[in-house]
Computed example of a mutant assay.
Amino acid sequence: MVNNAAEAYKRQQIMTATPEALTLMLYNGCLKFMNEGKEAVENKQYENANTLLQKAQQIISEFRITLNMDYDISHQLMPLYNYTYDRLVEGNMKSDPALIQEAIDIIKELRDAWAQAMKKARQDGGTKNVQGDSYVG
Score class of each variant (00 low, 15 high):
89 V>K: 08
37 G>M: 01
44 K>E: 15
63 F>L: 06
44 K>I: 08
65 I>M: 15
77 L>N: 01
46 Y>C: 05
27 Y>S: 06
57 Q>T: 01
74 S>C: 02
41 V>W: 00
56 A>H: 03
81 Y>N: 00
43 N>Y: 02
37 G>K: 04
45 Q>R: 14
49 A>R: 00
27 Y>N: 03
69 M>D: 14
73 I>A: 10
42 E>Y: 03
21 A>H: 09
87 R>G: 01
54 Q>S: 08
40 A>C: 07
17 A>N: 06
23 T>R: 03
58 Q>E: 13
82 N>R: 10
45 Q>W: 01
21 A>E: 15
47 E>D: 15
66 T>G: 15
91 G>K: 00
49 A>G: 06
68 N>A: 03
34 M>W: 00
38 K>G: 07
18 T>S: 14
33 F>Q: 07
50 N>C: 03
26 L>W: 09
18 T>I: 06
58 Q>M: 13
60 I>G: 02
23 T>Q: 06
33 F>E: 08
56 A>W: 02
17 A>H: 10
28 N>M: 11
72 D>G: 09
31 L>F: 04
39 E>S: 13
37 G>Q: 05
66 T>N: 15
89 V>R: 06
81 Y>F: 10
85 Y>D: 00
93 M>W: 11
58 Q>Y: 13
55 K>Q: 14
36 E>Y: 05
31 L>A: 08
18 T>G: 12
91 G>F: 05
49 A>S: 11
45 Q>K: 12
64 R>D: 01
17 A>T: 06
71 Y>K: 04
26 L>S: 10
95 S>I: 01
62 E>C: 09
32 K>W: 13
83 Y>Q: 10
58 Q>F: 11
47 E>K: 14
41 V>Y: 00
38 K>N: 08
72 D>Q: 12
55 K>V: 01
54 Q>F: 12
70 D>Q: 05
55 K>L: 04
53 L>N: 00
69 M>E: 14
62 E>H: 13
24 L>W: 06
45 Q>I: 07
39 E>M: 13
